[in-house]
């Protein structure tokens, strides 16, 4: 069975979509030499007209992509650093996202914003370590956070084919994942998946934390039966899939690598408690409020959601009620 790495899954998705659809092209910083090791080999295969190295002008090239999309192209932008999304938030939210409604349906803006290496990359400190997926879910831009190589492939393919802007967060913590992959296929946007069935508690884990949640579930297997739900897409969220899980388990814990206040974990809990009676108060494990990742490795780790915190939250939730 072929082993596929997460990064090569992204590469394959880009190559397959560029082959399938002439209107797909890539732009970003240092992508011709594949500095992020995602666009590897694509310059040679598709040429400089479809793999554009840009100047360091994130705001302009993000809106350039919006314009190209308005004219029928399907741009994919690679951002080297997750924090660059703060710089181009206005361009994505106030223009790309708003154009279809503001024009009364005259246009579509099919742009994919790919962030290979979101969240903490140990030692990259405060300005290179954010995980702002919740911001895009908040404003209603389709937001995906694949956890596995197969999903990295399938969700990126679906993002490129989507007629709306889509942000693809490829967490740094998942980039080294490898998996046996027999069938590469598009993964529908907005559809979560139960990674591990369980009976006592539903753990919703985002991105690379899916792997932590699976490890914790295995460790706790003798005491508690943990169901791990991977939403894969944060907006639109697979509420039906999650509610189905929580309706069976009656308990909910969310582990989310973003800041606590107004984070996606809060939205997940709020929506579940609006709809499903729970046997115990739900809990969330997140970054702290207002987190800025400190440089020193021990401090960096202290601010990220950890397995110990998740284990404690599961045990507390299962003890309550």
């Amino acid at each position: 069975m072929p082993r596929l790495s997460y990064r090569r899954a992204l590469t394959r998705a880009l190559a397959d979509e560029m082959t399938r659809d002439e209107s797909v092209f890539l732009l970003g910083e240092d992508i011709r030499v594949a500095a992020a090791n995602v666009t590897t080999g694509l310059l040679k295969k598709f040429g400089p007209d479809r793999v554009l190295d840009t100047p360091l002008s994130e705001q302009a090239f993000t809106s350039f992509a919006t314009g190209a999309a308005l004219a029928g192209a399907r741009p994919v932008i690679e951002f080297q650093i997750p924090s660059l999304l703060f710089l181009v938030f206005e361009q994505i939210v106030n223009h790309a996202h708003k154009f279809p409604l503001m024009t009364g349906g005259q246009c579509a803006v099919p742009v994919t914003y790919l962030v290979p290496g979101s969240g903490s990359r140990t030692g990259w400190a405060g300005q290179h370590s954010d995980h702002p997926y919740g911001l895009f879910a908040h404003v209603g831009v389709t937001t995906v956070v694949p956890a596995t190589p197969a999903d990295a492939y399938g969700l990126l393919v679906s993002a490129i084919r989507c007629d709306d802007p889509v942000v693809v967060f490829a967490p740094a913590g998942a980039l080294d994942a490898r998996a046996d992959v027999t069938d590469l296929a598009p993964v529908p946007l907005g559809r979560g998946v139960v990674r591990r069935p369980g009976a006592d508690v539903t753990v919703v884990a985002v991105g690379h934390l899916v792997h932590d949640a699976l490890a914790v579930a295995e460790e706790l297997a003798g005491q508690v039966s943990v169901e791990v739900f991977d939403p894969r897409t944060l907006y639109p969220f697979d509420w039906d899939g999650l509610l189905d899980s929580v309706s069976r388990t009656g308990r909910l814990v969310v582990v989310d690598d973003s800041n606590r206040s107004c984070g996606i974990a809060g939205e997940i809990i709020a929506t579940v408690v609006e709809r499903v009676p729970l046997a115990a108060p739900p809990r969330r494990v997140t970054r702290p409020d207002g987190a800025v990742l400190p440089f020193a490795p021990a401090l960096d780790r202290a601010v990220q959601p950890g397995r110990d915190q998740l284990t404690a939250a599961i045990q507390l939730t299962c003890k309550d009620g």
Partner: peptide, 20 residues
């Protein structure tokens, strides 16, 4: 391709559209 209410925002959009 639209009046745009954010000052200075449309130039890059139009550049991308013409390029495409």
């Amino acid at each position: 391709l639209g009046a745009n209410a954010i000052v200075g925002a449309a130039g890059a959009i139009l550049t991308g559209a013409v390029w495409a």
